[in-house]
């Protein structure tokens, strides 16, 4: 009886994780693709120095930060995968979403400042684990860079 109850809870969590996690991911990817197209003109480079024709631009730091939670289904799939090894596809999409969303938020900030480009792009990432590493974790991705803003001649 006890075992059945635990199994029921497990399957319910798995089902909820799958349904809501997958829906959230599909929606997120849709907006990511849409905004990436919209921000294509704000060029993001990992060059440390500005290209010569932008050397006269003002520079300032811009950053974008995002925290994405993992869902129960992804945790279970990853747990099974960690027993046998191989591509952790369930976490790959999570991190991909995090990185792209962080860049988009950074680009958004750059756009609000009137920047033409962002150089020296860098990432920081960290993991937020719930309940002292026992529960579901989240990932944080921070993207930051130097925005180049054209100086308006007086």
């Amino acid at each position: 009886m006890d075992v059945l109850f635990q199994l029921g809870v497990f399957i319910t969590l798995l089902f909820l994780g799958y349904v809501f996690g997958r829906r959230a991911e599909a929606r997120h990817y849709k907006t990511i693709r849409m905004r990436e197209r919209a921000f294509r003109k704000i060029v993001v480079l990992n060059e440390r120095f500005p290209p010569p024709h932008l050397c006269q631009h003002q520079s300032t730091m811009v950053c974008g930060n995002v925290v994405v939670s993992v869902d129960y289904f992804k945790v279970v799939v990853a747990g099974l995968r960690s027993l046998v090894g191989g591509r952790m596809t369930s976490y790959e999409s999570l991190l991909d979403r995090g990185r792209r969303e962080a860049i988009l938020r950074m680009q958004n900030e750059a756009k609000n400042l009137g920047a033409e480009a962002v150089i020296n792009l860098k990432f920081e990432t960290s993991q937020i684990s719930g309940q002292a590493g026992q529960g579901l974790g989240s990932i944080e991705v921070l993207a930051y860079g130097t925005a180049l803003i054209p100086v308006i001649p007086e």
Partner: peptide, 12 residues
């Protein structure tokens, strides 16, 4: 490139 296109249920 960065994500798998196969269905997550299949993997599971």
């Amino acid at each position: 490139i960065n994500i798998s296109t196969s269905h997550p249920l299949k993997d599971f």
